Deep mutational scan, measured.
Amino acid sequence: HNGKLCKLKGIAPLQLGKCNITGWLLGNPECDSLLPARSWSYIVETPNSENGACYPGDLIDYEELREQLSSVSSLERFEIFPKESSWPNHTFNGVTVSCSHRGKSSFYRNLLWLTKKGDSYPKLTNSYVNNKGKEVLVLWGVHHPSSSDEQQSLYSNGNAYVSVASSNYNRRFTPEIAARPKVRDQHGRMNYYWTLLEPGDTIIFEATGNLIAPWYAFALSRGFESGIITSNASMHECNTKCQTPQGAINSNLPFQNIHPVTIGECPKYVRSTKLRMVTGLRNIPSIQYRGLFGAIAGFIEGGWTGMIDGWYGYHHQNEQGSGYAADQKSTQNAINGITNKVNSVIEKMNTQFTAVGKEFNNLEKRMENLNKKVDDGFLDIWTYNAELLVLLENERTLDFHDLNVKNLYEKVKSQLKNNAKEIGNGCFEFYHKCDNECMESVRNGTYDYPKYSEESKLNREKIDGVKLESMGVYQILAIYSTVASSLVLLVSLGAISFWMCSNGSLQCRICI
């Protein structure tokens, strides 16, 4: 991952900044910058967002509201009850120091605090018919004063009620008058409520006091790749198909172990950190130390980045220098085999997901714990399936590479015959000098055995068991695999060879 928040398929997220979902939807004055928000790819909250409900109280069923919003990608904020005409018999300019803005008392931008007009609070009834052709999110509140005197001074009615009804919602609220500790300079409380109004449905408000009335509502448009994440990451000019709280993932790998919460087309989250597919040879310690064997393909974004291909070729060293050249036929066979294998694994496992966190309130801790156990169970199954699949494929890959290298080895052996000696570690020792032209003939299969047989015969008789390297004779190393990324691999195959001279070296080696 890149540690950044990015656009998702070209669409920017909605960053709530210092506000949370509650503050944004109710219209906390400190969240005025969010009022123009219309569309987004996903919503970003920060872990310690401080601006929620400015007048103390709870947004009821907040967790369910977050779940609903996680599939919303755009909205239209509109005046559901026009301020100047909807409440002619009531005062609608209630403000509070708890919702101060720029040093002055204020109130929510989407709600109206209705109080008595003169000395009376006549029963009010108002309704709205949803003609938007889509779901409408309606929010309101109920004020709970701290004393009967406060109730009387604001609403005149000691036994007030609030009723809200639609086809799918029907509740009646009565204020709970009680002494409470002071929070944000208030002994009173406000509880906030919401409902989704279906197209064509009607919502009716009736009250004799204590109503925090809707002013603006939201017509919602769903987008199934949307979601809500909690993150401290910063926004950058970048684009992605998959976003996590820790950063964007741009990967076609089937798995990731970065974060379980994802938005967009994302690899499946697994616990494993070692889900690797081999593309090189079986481990040979001396070669492995030099980083030549054991190439791997990573299938977990965050564990290993991208696929690494092994390729086969020849390396030689003689009086004229040293050089490398790919054996294109065996390399292409290996590439085709690995590509098919990788595609097979991805096809089997690479279903892209959006995974969002589930919200539970403080009273639902047991449910949250149960949900976590269920999620953990599914996660263990996914991890096991992934590891088992790759384990089985790896064994076949190792066998496949062994065969490829063996074929190259036999190709060289059949040409050199007794003009060189096998020394048991995949290397041959020449009994004759071999210049670049000679080396090329070994690589392309045109090695002239009779041409060098007499010199080889004489050297075999002279050496008589002495280690060949100390006599200045020449080696050919018969097994060799270097490691390159897919891009470098293609470039390498396009070149005939490249040279690395070893000044004054008397050794001649050709490596497979």
Rank of each mutant, 00 (worst) to 15 (best):
H432A: 04
A325Y: 13
C266A: 11
N257T: 02
S486H: 08
Y314I: 04
A297T: 06
R290I: 02
T240A: 15
N340V: 11
F378Q: 04
W304T: 01
G294E: 07
G298S: 05
R443S: 05
K467N: 12
G465R: 12
M277T: 08
L398K: 02
G310H: 03
I381W: 09
L398E: 09
S497G: 15
C238N: 03
I381H: 03
E461A: 00
L458S: 14
Y289V: 10
K358F: 09
I346L: 13
C508R: 04
Y449I: 06
L370D: 09
A334Y: 07
V442T: 07
C508K: 02
N257V: 15
K365F: 14
N318R: 04
K417S: 10
E440T: 08
Y447W: 15
T262H: 09
V278W: 07
L477K: 11
I338W: 04
L253K: 12
M277F: 12
M235E: 06
E265S: 13
G264T: 09
Q317F: 08
N283C: 03
T482S: 13
C242W: 08
C266Q: 09
L370G: 08
D464Q: 14
S251G: 15
N385P: 03
K421P: 04
A297W: 14
Y431Q: 04
V278E: 05
S272Q: 08
S251D: 02
C238Q: 03
L493T: 10
A295D: 07
Y409M: 10
Q320N: 07
I423N: 08
N369I: 07
A248E: 11
N459F: 10
I496S: 04
L253P: 00
P267F: 04
M471D: 02
V473P: 15
E422K: 05
H432R: 08
N459E: 07
C427T: 06
S272W: 04
C242H: 05
M307C: 01
Y289Q: 05
I423C: 11
A233C: 08
G377W: 01
F378R: 06
L363E: 07
S272C: 12
A484S: 08
G445Y: 13
H315P: 00
T244L: 11
K406V: 02
